[in-house]
Design a protein around this nucleic acid. Sequence first.
DNA 1: GCCGGTTGAGATAACGTTATCCCGAAAGGT
DNA 2: ACCTTTCGGGATAACGTTATCTCAACCGGC
Lengths: 325, 325
Amino acid sequence: MVDVAREAGVALRTVSRVVNGDSTVGPGLAARVHAAIAALDYRPDERARQLRSGVTGTLGAAVRQLSHVNPVLRAVERAARDAGLMVLAASTEDDEELERRVVESMCRRRFDGIILEPIGTDHGYLIPELAAGLSLVAVDRPVLGLDVDCVLSDNVAGIQAAYSHLAERGHRRIAYIGDDERIYTAQERATAFRACAAASGRAVDSMAHTGPIERGRIRAAIAAVLDGDSPASAIITGNATISVEVLRELGAAAGKVAVIGFDDSELATLLRPDLTVIAQDDRTIGGTAVDMLRARIAEPDRPVRRVTVPVELVARGSGEIPPAW
Amino acid sequence: MVDVAREAGVALRTVSRVVNGDSTVGPGLAARVHAAIAALDYRPDERARQLRSGVTGTLGAAVRQLSHVNPVLRAVERAARDAGLMVLAASTEDDEELERRVVESMCRRRFDGIILEPIGTDHGYLIPELAAGLSLVAVDRPVLGLDVDCVLSDNVAGIQAAYSHLAERGHRRIAYIGDDERIYTAQERATAFRACAAASGRAVDSMAHTGPIERGRIRAAIAAVLDGDSPASAIITGNATISVEVLRELGAAAGKVAVIGFDDSELATLLRPDLTVIAQDDRTIGGTAVDMLRARIAEPDRPVRRVTVPVELVARGSGEIPPAW
DNA sequence: GCCGGTTGAGATAACGTTATCCCGAAAGGT
DNA sequence: ACCTTTCGGGATAACGTTATCTCAACCGGC
């Protein structure tokens, strides 16, 4: 910048004014400065600008896997863009240690705020950051043990809707195959399922199968649920990946048993019959997360809010298969 | 930092030494400084550190859609992490203007280098950045008109492999349904297909259908190719999204016509028969991109390299369906 | 001819770090 | 007792910006 000033024969401050489009600089000087900028390949340094001016205009997004389908992240990017903010994202890979490194790195860069899909149970490292003024909104799962803004889907209502949908169509034996219950959403959905089953007076244990997503486990769960003297006539799955694996294992039998999947996906309309799903409102979740983050940035001491976004049951066929008597 | 120094009763420079784990500071003083850091909720400012020290340790990734499946990005993140670099990513949304904003923003932040999935045809805005020392590697598509490092899949060999695979199994009428040819890879694949068809002495035009991904267009293309007096017995698709749409439209007819899809995906083993695909070597593409970027950062004047990564035909069933005579 | 207001532009001091240079004291050798 | 090392630590000056203050010149009005 000092070189540009010398080249243009003006003061340092005038170069800054030109770069920032300050109107108090005459057109002649501005042209000289622009010429000097082009001649010297001058690039302004955002870090120095932020350091001096104090504004960053940047949001961080720490999500499980950047390279996976993540409609919430898409909504976050869109909402942030509409608000004139830039989003820089990184993956946490479902690794607590990596999550910590990513978030701390974003803090050191003084991002205005962070949207986090939290993993694991120990978020103690956040305490000093929050004390030092970090604005944070958790998405999809709460930050356990810490009073932090968050936006969640209504998992319980989703499972209830699926269960009722099936029960109303005459299903008496409804099974649930879900993800590892160490994951918050998986635990919440499985618990909701067990409550539904218990409320309708049925044996719970034989119908709820949860654990890590492995082909062998899914196959065993399906076998346990469909074989035997009183087989299930309907299956609710715990998330999109489980849905894929269950449908893969069911194969030709997919038309014989009712299936409702948690999470919508492009697969849902590829299969025959199309998959009935409990769809999360990703647009609303992402948009709300950005709104809440901006509100917290503007007013750090505002009360913590926990927002639950409704889900929607989308009937497409697989959930409307009647029980085989 | 100056507050911490005062609190601990040491010089500013000593706080910096402690934060950076400099061994020349005595354990007693270090403990005092750490206590002061904790007491004052001091967070080091990465921007100031970078400004002074000159090192950022950060790579930018500008990809089409963060929230879509992108195995290359995953490989990039992994390789960068192994090299001790942080990756911050943003979406370009297939929008030239947004790509420019994202890349320029990363430049102003002085990221060490950028990995870019370039879109569109006009990358003139990159010229001054490159002149000013930007390290950049293009992935999946080249930066048209500019001599820039890039890592590409061997699209031509992939199409040739698919065509031969089908021809060897007796298919005489092979069709291609691809993406909009304004997209580089789509154009390259379509051209390769036409060359294959011409080489085997067949009419080309009626068998190659390209254009934007819209359900109506795909349906019309399939109808044009399968109906009529000499219907195609095999279809090659131009990318994963086209594969999904083609299979959706084929429906029950999917078992009657051979299909080879470009790009592997989790869908491929969900359908019956499983989908034969031309799989890109995402791991190698991502890893190579990071290697090349690091090499260019280390040696800005090294000659530009264009690397083509082989693809692999994975036979799973759908590509081995014999022609129906 | 003087005064108040506007307008264009320079000087200087931050922002929060680290690099460089320097110094005092303790340790070790003759 | 003196000289040299080594080591712990301080003072000061950058890094590339912008905020704040200042100042000169110009202009119209009375």
